[in-house]
Design a protein around this nucleic acid. Structure first.
Length: 210
DNA sequence: AACTCGGGGCA
DNA sequence: TGCCCAGAGTT
């Protein structure tokens, strides 16, 4: 069992040797805003929005000069834009008033920002500040459970099980492995099992022993 | 734990 | 058209 999981992680690390998300930005602030925008929304849409939004308003002080309606104008092609515009406006004000215009570097402070939950906080910690964290989104949740790396219905428990299984220095990488594999192969619908290098080790495919 | 928010992408 | 999507907040 344990052997199997180790083998799966080893193969994943070879499949995705230099894992990066498509959401990479110049500053922690831009990453934070982009990640807030990405909730229930594809990265294509987020990238299209931020390429214009961040060009006009690259930092927290510039963005905080906008009204909620002006922010909404930039992000209207994202779902949930009304709520997100409100959250982004509030986040800018909180960062300036309570964090000297900087993005905080603790999970507690990040999760206190409106629109920032466990997943977004972990993304920022890992990708902006190189603080080890495993952000569990729907891809990670699905793939980790299919592969038997976790047995959990809730993201938080999945995160804890993965942290227990995986060495800390690989946490951020593992997050990317599972996301990339979830998008390219282990898709939600009609997964490409016949193309999956993990097939021999996947509990879903009836491997009984080893 | 279940429900709501929401427009875009894709078959 | 219909179905799903790199979640968070509220009840």
């Amino acid at each position: 069992m344990k052997q199997n999981k180790t083998k799966i992680l080893s193969i994943l690390s070879q499949l995705y040797p230099n894992p990066t998300t498509e959401l990479e930005f110049e500053t922690p602030f831009q990453l934070l805003i982009a990640t807030i925008l990405s909730a229930q929304c594809t990265d294509k849409v987020v990238n299209r929005i931020t390429s214009v939004f961040f060009c006009d308003h690259p930092d927290v002080y510039s963005m905080s000069s906008l009204t909620e309606e002006q922010i909404a104008g930039y992000i209207k092609s994202a779902g949930l834009w009304k709520t997100k515009a409100k959250h982004i406006k509030m986040v800018c004000e909180i960062l300036i008033n309570e964090h000297h215009g900087l993005v905080p570097q603790t999970r507690e402070e990040l999760e206190n920002l409106p629109g920032v939950g466990r997943k977004t906080a972990n993304v920022v910690l890992a990708n902006a500040f190189s603080i080890p964290a495993i952000a569990v989104d729907t891809h990670v949740q699905r793939v980790a459970n299919r592969l038997g790396l976790a047995q959990s219905k809730t993201p938080l428990r999945t995160e804890k099980q993965l942290m227990e299984l995986i060495p800390k220095h690989q946490w951020s990488d593992a997050h990317h492995w599972l996301i990339l594999h979830g998008r390219r192969v282990c898709r939600a619908q009609r997964p490409l099992c016949d193309q999956c290098p993990l097939l021999p080790y996947c509990p879903q495919n009836g491997l009984k022993s080893n």
